[in-house]
Each structure stands twice: as structure tokens, then as C-alpha cells.
């Protein structure tokens, strides 16, 4: 069987290796003096773009009330069964509100389905990626930790309006 030729055979200079190696060395030497891409984490923090899927949070209106109407769709769609909602009645226009809203952050997989399915834009993914807990109880986030003022979530809400 004839030896299959390469598309482009190496010419003499390339076959000598040495000039090609020199080229490679020159490239790495140049790279040594280029600016570094490392972020020194605790001092410098990564600022995620609006498309970033961080910790899911509940939107809190300016009036201090959550947008959520406790329909339970997020809890239903959650593939990791991380969300628990218990509904109750309220005098407000929306008539229903979540009496209890818990996300187990050890179960959450940051898929963003809850945000996608929510009819009220009441649960969104935030930019918060610093999630630390020291025991399992701490990892269950209740309403106290989940409620975030709408002013802090403008980026994400705008992103959702444009791209969802």
C-alpha cells in the first residue's frame, strides 16, 4: 500500500525542527511579558455580566412586598426539587402570597428554569456567586435571605425582557 501523503509535506526547514522550535520559543517568550489574566480573588472580585446565572432570588417591590403570587410553578419545574412554596391569602391586589418560600441551596443546580417559568418575573437569577454555608441547615435559604430589592436586580430584569 502506498504511503498516504499529507496534505502539505514538511519542507526542509520545517524538517530540521530547530527553526520551528525557535519560533515556538519566541512566542512563549513574548507571552511572558503580556498582561496577566489572573484575578486575585479575595481582593479583586469578578463582576458577572447580566446573563450570569448566580443564586436565585425573589424580587421585592419598592413597597417592600414580594412579587411572588405563590403559584408554585417554580417548585413544580425545579429538576432538583430544591424549592418549597406554601401559599396563603392576602388583602393586597394580588390576593395570594407565599407564606413560606424556601430554596435548598445544596440542591439548586442553577439551571434557571424557575426564572423561565415564572409568570410574574418574581424569581430571577442574581449575580451573587459567593455561597458559603457551614452546615446543612444554613444551606436552606428562607424568605429573609431570598428577598432582594428590585433596584439591585435591574440588569437581570432588563436582560430577561430583551432575551427571554
Amino acid at each position: 500500500m502506498p504511503v498516504k501523503k499529507r496534505k502539505k509535506d514538511l519542507n526542509l526547514m520545517e524538517n530540521l525542527y530547530i527553526p520551528e522550535i525557535a519560533k515556538g520559543l519566541a512566542l512563549t517568550f513574548k507571552t511572558m511579558f503580556k498582561p496577566k489574566v489572573t484575578m486575585e480573588y479575595p481582593e479583586v472580585k469578578f463582576q458577572p455580566p447580566a446573563s450570569y446565572r448566580g443564586r436565585p432570588v425573589l424580587v421585592q417591590e419598592e413597597s417592600g412586598v414580594e412579587r411572588c403570587v405563590a403559584c408554585g410553578l417554580c417548585s413544580r419545574v425545579c429538576p432538583a426539587l430544591a424549592i418549597e412554596v406554601r401559599a396563603s391569602e392576602t388583602e393586597l391586589e394580588k390576593e395570594r402570597y407565599p407564606e413560606k418560600f424556601e430554596i435548598n441551596m445544596l440542591r439548586c443546580i442553577f439551571c434557571g428554569f424557575c426564572e423561565e417559568v415564572c409568570p410574574e418575573e418574581a424569581i430571577v437569577m442574581s449575580k451573587d456567586y459567593e455561597l458559603v454555608f457551614t452546615d446543612r441547615e444554613d444551606a436552606i435559604y428562607g424568605k429573609d435571605k431570598l428577598l432582594v430589592p428590585v433596584a439591585n436586580l435591574k440588569d437581570r430584569l432588563e436582560f430577561l425582557r430583551n432575551f427571554k
Binding site: T31, M32, K36, T38
Partner: peptide, 10 residues
């Protein structure tokens, strides 16, 4: 150190 610099790290 040198390996880091060559790979644009610190």
C-alpha cells in the same frame, strides 16, 4: 513562576 508567566498567569 515561568510556567505561569508563559500561560498568562501570575
Amino acid at each position: 513562576k515561568v510556567s505561569a508567566w508563559i500561560q498568562s498567569r501570575l
